[in-house]
Design a protein around this nucleic acid. Structure first.
Length: 792
DNA sequence: GGTTATGGATTTTTT
DNA sequence: ATCCATAACC
C-alpha cells in the first residue's frame, strides 16, 4: 500500500534537489542526450541523479546501465553517490573507467579475437622498455628516434584505431617509416609477453565488438543505457566504443564541457562532443550554466578569459551568489618573491581569518614551479601537500616487487623478468642476460624458459650458470607458493626469499630505509585489498594495481595547503585559489605558442584554474624569472589582459619599488660576509607594509558594504544553494588546530637515521618531515622515533 | 659487474 | 639549475 506512495515521494525528493535544466537532463527518457555541464554546475549531481531516476522512476534494471568515466577516482565517487541515493542496488550497475570496462570485456570474451584471458596490463615504463627493444631490432639510433616520441606516435595511432599494417600503408615520411616498423615489432613483443598496453585495452575492445557479432549483440542488449562522463576528454577509439555499445538502444547520454577540454595533447578530441548532434540528429541538448561554486566576480573573470576562444558551444556561467571579493593580480619581483608573497598571504589569512590551511590551493602550469613554492613554505613553516607528482606505484621498489609478482602469475612476462633478474644483484649481468635473450629468441620461448634451457648448455660460464640456476629455482619455489598463499603472505615471501629486503637493510642509507617503508606500505595495501575483495587472487590484485593510479591518493583531510598543476586541479574546488606564473612563455606555455589550437587549450586551462575557486582568487606573475639557470624579463600573460577591470585589483607596489630603486635590488643580491643576503628578507618589510595597507583597505571597504546586510550564517562570499554543496566539508572532522600527536608544522625534530628535519605537516597516523639532505619523507608515527630538537 | 663522468633536454597526465 | 640516460671507468 504505502510502498508505491513512498517511492513516489522518494522520486519527488530526488527532483526537488535539482534546478530546471538539471531536472530536464535527469528526467529525459529514452534517446540520445547531450549535457553541456559548465564548471561547478552540478554535473556529477545530474549524472548520478539521472541514474537513480532511471532505476527508481523508470524501472530500469541497474545491471543494464553502463556508466563510464576516465579516472578511478571519478568512478569511485560516482558509485558512492549513487549508492547513497538508491542503496545497495547500485552494486549491480557497471560503473568504471574505460580501461577497466575494456579489461573486463576482454578477459571474458577476448578469446574470440585471440586475447588470452590472463593477459597482463603493461604500464608506461613497461611499454617504454618494449619500445626500446623494438627500436634496437629495427636498429636505429635511439637518440634520433627517441623511445618516448616513438611511443607517443604509436599511442596516437592506437587512439585512432590504426594498427601496424594500416599505419605502414598510410603514414609516409622518414620518421613514420621507422615508427611503423617499430610498431609491428612492439605489438609482436606485447603478444609474446601475453600483455596489452593501455591503448590496446580500448583498441582491442573495439575490435572485439566489431569482429565478434555474438559478443557485440550480448553487450548491446545488456546495456540499455550508456552514460559517459567528461565527454570532452574522449578520443576516437573510446568514441567508437561508446558508439558501438549504444548502437542498439541509442540511449546514450554524454556529459561534458568543451571549455574544460585540456587533454588534447594526449588524444582527446573536443570536436567529438561538439559533433554529438551530427551522430545523433535527434539528440536532446541540455545546458547547465548555473554555477554553485564561485562568486559572481570570479565567474565574470572566467567568462571573459574563455570568451576569445572560437568554436565553443555558446554558454555563460551565472550564479545567485554574491559578487564577492575582487580577483587580485599581483606582480612579483621574481619567483622567490612570488612564492614568499603567496605563503605570507596564506599564513596571514590562516591567522587572521581563521581559515584552515586546507582551504587553499596553489596552481601552476608546470611541475618545476613547485620547488620555489615548497622552499618558501618550508622556511615559513607552513604545511603543504603536493597533489600528483611521483606516484606510489611508479617508485622503483614498488615496481620491482610488482615485477616479481607478475612473473609468478605470468611466466611469459619477460619484461618483468628482466627487471628483476639481477635485482638484488645476483651475478647475472648484461652479458648473461644477452645470452639468455638470444636463447629465448632461438627457441621462440620466454626468458624464463631460456633460464632453464641455459642449464648445462655451453653458452654460459659455470659461474653464470650457477647464478641463473639459483634464480630459476627461487622463481619456481615462489611460483609454487603463489598457488596456495594469500597475496600478502606471498609478497612477504618474495621480499624475504629474493633478498630484496636484505639488500635494502644492508645499504643502510636513508633512501633505502624510505624504500623499505614503502614496501611495508605495499603490504598494508595487499591486506586492505584482501579485506575488501571477495576474490583476492594474485591476478585480481595485479589488475587492481595496474589500473589504479594513485594508491596513496593524497589525503585531503590533511590540513595542508594543496599545490598542484592546473591539469591536476581539474574537478577539484577550493575556497581560495592562487594561480602563479601568469607570464607569457610560462602560461601560455612556450611550446603552445605556435599553434592556435594549443593556445586555445591553454586558455581553457586558465578557465579551469579560475573556476576551481569558491571565494577568492589571486593571480601572480613575475617581472623576472630564472629558467634553466637563465634570468629573463617576463611579460604578463595575455590571459591577464582579458580580465574585466571592474572585478580586478592589481598590486605591483613592491615590484615598482624595485623598478624605481634599482640600487635596492643590487644591494639585495650583493654578497654579504661570504653568503648572499637574501633578497626576500630585504623585501620583507617593504612588502609587509604594502600587504597590510591593502588588507586594511579591503576590510574597511567590506565593513562599509556589509553594514546594511543582515548578519547571515556561513562564510562570507558563498551562497549555499540547495542544488550543490561544497564537497570537502563532509570529510572526517578533525581538530581544527594542526598539532595532533604533538608535532606541528614548522617544528624542528631529530630522526635517528635522517638527522635534523622540519615538520611539514602531521596527521593522526603520519608526519611529513623535510630533511635538508634526504628530502621530504612521510613517516609513520608508530615507527618513527622522532625527538624534538631544542630550538632556540 | 658496479660506479662515476659527461651530454642533452627541459608541459601538461590517465589508464 | 637539474635531472636523466648512456658511456667510459674501476
Amino acid at each position: 500500500m504505502g510502498a508505491k506512495k513512498a517511492e513516489a515521494k522518494a522520486i519527488e525528493a530526488l527532483l526537488a534537489d535539482l534546478n530546471e535544466p538539471q531536472r530536464e537532463a535527469v528526467c529525459h527518457g529514452d534517446g540520445p542526450l547531450l549535457v553541456f555541464a559548465g564548471a561547478g554546475s552540478g554535473k556529477t549531481r545530474a549524472l548520478t541523479y539521472r541514474i537513480a531516476y532511471l532505476i527508481e522512476a523508470c524501472g530500469v534494471a541497474p545491471e543494464s546501465i553502463l556508466a563510464v568515466t576516465f579516472t578511478n577516482k571519478a568512478a569511485g565517487e560516482m558509485k558512492e553517490r549513487i549508492r547513497t541515493l538508491i542503496g545497495d542496488r547500485a552494486a549491480a550497475l557497471w560503473a568504471g573507467t574505460f580501461h577497466s570496462m575494456c579489461a573486463r570485456m576482454l578477459r571474458r570474451h577476448g578469446r574470440a579475437i585471440k586475447v588470452e584471458p590472463n593477459f597482463v596490463i603493461f604500464d608506461t615504463p613497461d611499454q617504454m622498455a618494449l619500445i626500446k627493444e623494438a627500436l634496437s631490432v629495427v636498429d636505429v639510433d635511439q637518440k634520433e628516434f627517441k623511445p618516448p616520441d616513438v611511443h607517443q606516435r604509436i599511442s596516437a595511432a592506437k587512439n585512432e584505431l590504426i594498427g601496424p599494417t594500416e599505419f605502414r600503408r598510410t603514414r609516409k615520411g622518414p620518421f613514420d617509416e621507422i615508427v611503423g616498423r617499430a610498431y609491428r615489432i612492439y605489438q609482436e613483443k606485447l603478444a609474446q609477453n601475453n600483455a596489452l598496453d593501455f591503448d590496446d585495452l580500448i583498441m582491442r575492445a573495439v575490435q572485439l565488438l566489431r569482429e565478434a557479432p555474438e559478443v557485440r549483440e550480448h553487450y548491446q542488449d545488456r546495456f540499455g543505457y550508456v552514460l559517459v562522463d567528461e565527454y570532452q576528454d574522449i578520443n576516437f577509439a573510446q568514441y567508437t566504443l561508446v558508439k558501438l555499445l549504444g548502437e542498439k538502444h541509442r540511449n546514450v547520454c554524454v556529459v561534458g564541457d568543451d571549455d574544460q577540454s585540456i587533454y588534447g595533447w594526449r588524444g582527446a578530441d573536443v570536436g567529438i562532443i561538439l559533433d554529438f548532434e551530427k551522430d545523433y540528429p535527434d539528440a536532446h541538448v541540455v545546458k547547465l550554466e548555473q554555477n554553485y561554486r564561485s562568486t559572481q566576480r570570479i565567474l565574470e573573470c572566467a567568462n571573459e578569459v574563455i570568451a576569445p576562444n572560437r568554436g565553443r558551444a555558446p554558454k555563460r556561467l551565472w550564479t545567485d551568489a554574491e559578487p564577492g571579493e575582487s580577483v587580485t593580480v599581483y606582480e612579483a619581483v621574481n619567483e622567490q618573491e612570488e612564492a614568499y608573497y603567496v605563503a605570507s598571504c596564506i599564513s596571514r589569512a590562516v591567522q587572521e581569518r581563521r581559515r584552515p590551511y586546507r582551504d587553499f590551493a596553489i596552481l601552476y602550469r608546470t611541475n618545476a614551479q613547485s620547488r620555489v613554492l615548497e622552499e618558501a613554505f618550508l622556511t615559513q613553516g607552513l604545511p603543504y601537500r603536493i597533489v600528483g607528482g611521483v606516484r606510489f606505484y611508479e617508485r622503483r621498489e614498488i615496481k620491482d616487487l610488482i615485477a616479481y609478482l607478475r612473473v609468478l602469475l605470468n611466466p611469459a612476462d619477460s619484461v618483468s623478468l628482466r627487471r628483476i633478474i639481477n635485482v638484488p644483484t645476483r651475478g647475472i649481468g648484461d652479458k648473461t642476460v644477452a645470452v639468455l635473450d638470444r636463447l629465448a629468441y632461438e627457441n621462440a620461448g620466454s626468458l624464463l624458459e631460456a633460464c632453464r634451457a641455459a642449464q648445462g648448455s655451453a653458452e654460459l660460464s659455470a659461474r653464470a650458470q650457477a647464478a641463473v640456476e639459483r634464480f630459476e629455482r627461487m622463481i619456481a619455489r615462489l611460483s609454487e607458493q603463489a598457488q596456495r598463499l594469500t597475496v600478502t603472505k606471498l609478497t612477504n615471501n618474495v621480499l624475504e626469499q629474493s633478498g630484496y629486503l636484505e639488500m635494502l637493510e644492508k645499504d643502510g642509507t636513508a633512501e633505502s630505509a624510505a624504500r623499505a617503508e614503502n614496501l611495508k606500505e605495499f603490504l598494508s595495501l595487499t591486506q586492505k585489498f584482501e579485506q575488501s575483495h571477495e576474490e583476492a587472487s594474485l591476478s585480481a590484485f595485479l589488475e587492481h594495481v595496474a589500473l589504479l593510479s594513485d594508491i596513496d591518493e593524497s589525503d585531503d583531510s590533511e590540513n595542508a595547503v594543496a599545490m598542484m598543476t592546473l591539469h591536476s586541479a581539474k574537478g577539484l574546488e577550493f575556497p581560495v585559489v592562487f594561480m602563479v606564473g601568469l607570464e607569457e612563455n610560462i602560461f601560455p606555455h612556450q611550446r603552445s605558442m605556435r599553434d592556435e589550437r594549443e593556445l586555445a587549450e591553454e586558455r581553457r586551462l586558465c578557465y579551469v584554474g579560475l573556476t576551481r575557486a569558491q571565494e577568492q582568487v589571486t593571480l601572480t606573475h613575475c617581472r623576472r624569472r630564472t629558467i634553466y639557470g637563465q634570468t629573463q624579463e617576463c611579460e604578463p600573460s595575455r590571459f591577464l589582459k582579458n580580465l574585466p577591470e571592474e572585478h580586478v585589483e592589481r598590486y605591483d607596489e613592491v615590484s615598482r619599488l624595485f623598478a624605481t630603486e634599482p640600487k635596492m635590488e643590487e644591494l639585495a643580491q650583493a654578497p654579504v660576509g661570504g653568503a648572499k643576503l637574501d633578497l626576500v628578507s630585504i623585501l620583507r618589510r617593504a612588502r609587509e607594509n604594502a600587504v597590510l595597507a591593502r588588507e586594511r583597505e579591503k576590510e574597511e571597504r567590506k565593513a562599509a558594504s556589509t553594514k546594511m546586510a543582515a548578519a547571515r550564517p556561513g562564510r562570507p562570499g558563498t551562497t549555499m544553494s540547495a542544488g550543490e554543496r561544497p564537497k570537502r566539508r563532509t570529510g572526517k572532522m578533525r581538530a581544527a588546530s594542526q598539532g595532533y600527536q604533538g608535532f606541528r608544522a614548522g617544528e624542528k625534530i631529530i630522526h635517528p637515521k635522517f638527522g635534523k628535519g622540519i615538520v611539514v605537516s602531521c596527521t593522526e597516523a603520519e608526519v611529513t618531515v623535510a630533511f635538508p639532505d634526504q628530502g621530504v619523507k612521510k613517516l609513520s608515527l608508530d615507527y618513527a622515533k622522532l625527538e624534538r630538537a631544542s630550538s632556540r
